[in-house]
Amino acid sequence: MDQIRVKICGLPDKAHVEAAVTAGAAYLGFVFFAKSPRHLEIADAARLALDVPPGVAKVALTVNATDAELDAITGAVPLDMLQLHGTESPDRVAEVRARYGLPVMKAVGVAGPEDLAALDAYGRVADQLLVDAKPPKGAALPGGNGLAFDWRLVAKKYWPCPWMLAGGLTPLNVAEAIRLTGARQVDVSSGVESAPGVKDAELIRAFIAAARGAVPA
């Protein structure tokens, strides 16, 4: 059976990049969104990305970024994937994918059954889907809020492209989330932090161990 693939998002420094890589993360997420406590300057992200070994995907998380912003990020940071975490339309996802020649992961917030149709639409234009908890009304951040959703909504669902489960995952609940949904990939940010934007190496290790030891139903 293939191992569960884990993305650690919002990494702030070399020590936590190393902790995630050593623990077996398949993806590392770098956040480019000024309102987030996990925001990185482009030069800092470029330095971190250069230390990532081959085989671990480097992902840039952006929110409604303009072409100019994406040009600056992709021109300086060696990346393997772009993550669009805003209100980008399917057309915009396709446009970004064509312009930059990088795989695109589109985050889609889920709170109820009415949100599932968007996953089909985005799944036809993105390379991957990030199925996340929909942020509450008025939230400053589109993700990383530590909120979960009813995982039964996406249990045993299949979309036109691979998907990753996110939203409120922690070392204590990730195995159950995988069991309930059948997810083969999971993403965590706030669930491995001791404070907003402050990653904890022990929590990173515990999360990856719990995820990789889980058995999807």
Score class of each variant (00 low, 15 high):
56 V>F: 05
52 V>D: 03
53 P>S: 09
31 V>T: 13
120 D>F: 03
138 G>S: 02
89 S>W: 03
209 A>Q: 14
118 A>Q: 14
38 R>G: 07
67 D>Q: 14
120 D>Y: 08
154 V>N: 10
144 G>S: 08
148 A>N: 15
83 Q>L: 09
41 E>R: 11
188 V>K: 14
147 L>S: 07
63 V>A: 04
133 A>R: 05
10 G>Q: 09
1 M>V: 10
200 D>S: 13
7 K>Q: 11
40 L>V: 05
141 L>I: 04
174 V>I: 04
68 A>Y: 10
7 K>C: 08
12 P>H: 12
45 A>Y: 02
42 I>T: 15
81 M>C: 15
174 V>C: 05
31 V>P: 08
49 A>Y: 06
161 C>V: 13
209 A>W: 04
200 D>Y: 04
208 I>K: 10
150 D>R: 13
112 G>W: 00
191 G>W: 02
212 R>H: 06
92 R>Q: 11
47 R>W: 09
36 S>H: 06
140 A>G: 09
194 S>K: 12
120 D>K: 14
90 P>Q: 02
215 V>L: 09
109 G>D: 01
157 K>P: 00
144 G>L: 04
217 A>N: 14
156 K>H: 15
209 A>D: 15
63 V>H: 02
93 V>P: 05
165 L>R: 10
121 A>Y: 00
91 D>A: 13
135 P>K: 09
216 P>W: 10
26 A>I: 00
132 D>T: 12
166 A>T: 05
9 C>S: 14
83 Q>G: 10
83 Q>V: 08
22 T>V: 13
111 A>V: 01
182 G>N: 01
178 I>N: 01
87 T>W: 01
213 G>P: 03
147 L>A: 14
120 D>A: 14
122 Y>H: 15
146 G>K: 08
124 R>P: 00
50 L>S: 14
178 I>S: 02
44 D>F: 01
5 R>N: 05
102 L>A: 00
209 A>I: 06
143 G>H: 12
136 P>L: 00
31 V>G: 01
130 L>Q: 07
108 V>M: 00
12 P>N: 11
123 G>Y: 02
66 T>S: 15
188 V>R: 09
64 N>A: 09
193 E>Y: 03
40 L>H: 03
167 G>M: 00
207 F>M: 04
116 L>V: 13
185 Q>H: 15
60 A>F: 06
162 P>N: 12
22 T>S: 14
94 A>K: 13
140 A>S: 13
3 Q>Y: 03
21 V>T: 10
183 A>K: 06
9 C>L: 08
91 D>G: 15
166 A>L: 02
140 A>I: 08
108 V>S: 04
19 A>M: 07
202 E>V: 15
117 A>L: 10
193 E>K: 12
160 P>N: 05
143 G>Q: 11
146 G>V: 13
101 G>C: 05
125 V>H: 06
25 A>D: 08
189 S>V: 09
140 A>P: 01
61 L>G: 04
48 L>T: 13
70 L>M: 14
101 G>V: 07
90 P>S: 02
75 G>R: 10
16 H>L: 12
132 D>R: 09
195 A>R: 11
173 N>V: 05
161 C>N: 08
83 Q>A: 10
14 K>E: 14
59 V>L: 03
66 T>W: 06
139 A>Q: 06
